[in-house]
């Protein structure tokens, strides 16, 4: 009676393989390829340190800036060429990987965006869902 009872297991394998479902991540990896964030939607827990691994597979620099709309408004007109002083604002050089650790105090949706010229318009944005665990 191995048969059809295997199907739920198989579905679980699929879901695990493509990274769907499960607990909010505390050590997620965000990859950048062809100027696109993967995943584009990510769930993390509120009130706990979350260490993000930011892997830039592109031969050009990118930014990962996460925050509320007013933060992004500032960066849309900002002139800082490089970000490395705030954990929520990181410049990732070409073909490199960085880590940054952030604790989110409030639940909610926060956009992460690359604010280098033209990158947001190109679609380089994602959503961070900070949720109660």
């Amino acid at each position: 009676m191995l048969r059809l009872s295997l199907l739920p297991f198989a579905f679980a394998v699929v879901l695990l393989a493509i990274g769907c479902g499960g607990e909010p991540a505390t050590e997620p990896t965000i990859a950048i390829h062809y100027s696109e964030f993967t995943p584009a939607v990510l769930e993390v827990p509120v009130g706990r340190p979350v260490t993000f691994t930011l892997r830039n597979d592109d031969p050009i620099a990118h930014e990962w800036i996460v925050g509320t709309p007013d933060v992004h408004d500032i960066h849309r007109v900002g002139t800082e060429p490089f970000h490395d002083e705030r954990p929520t604002e990181v410049t990732i050089p070409p073909l490199s990987t960085l880590e940054t650790t952030v604790t989110f105090a409030k639940p909610g949706d926060y956009a992460y965006i690359c604010h280098l010229p033209g990158h947001e318009a190109y679609g380089m944005a994602g959503t961070l869902r900070v949720v109660e665990v």
């Binding site: 191995l2 059809l4 198989a10 394998v13 493509i18």
Partner: peptide
């Protein structure tokens, strides 16, 4: 193919193989 697509494709292939095996057994 992007990495995620390859992974998802592999997972779906795995699902098909397992389902096929289950149906044959059944």
């Amino acid at each position: 193919l992007p990495e995620t697509a390859t992974l998802a494709g592999g997972a779906i292939l795995l699902l098909v193989l397992i389902s096929s095996l289950a149906l044959r057994r059944s």
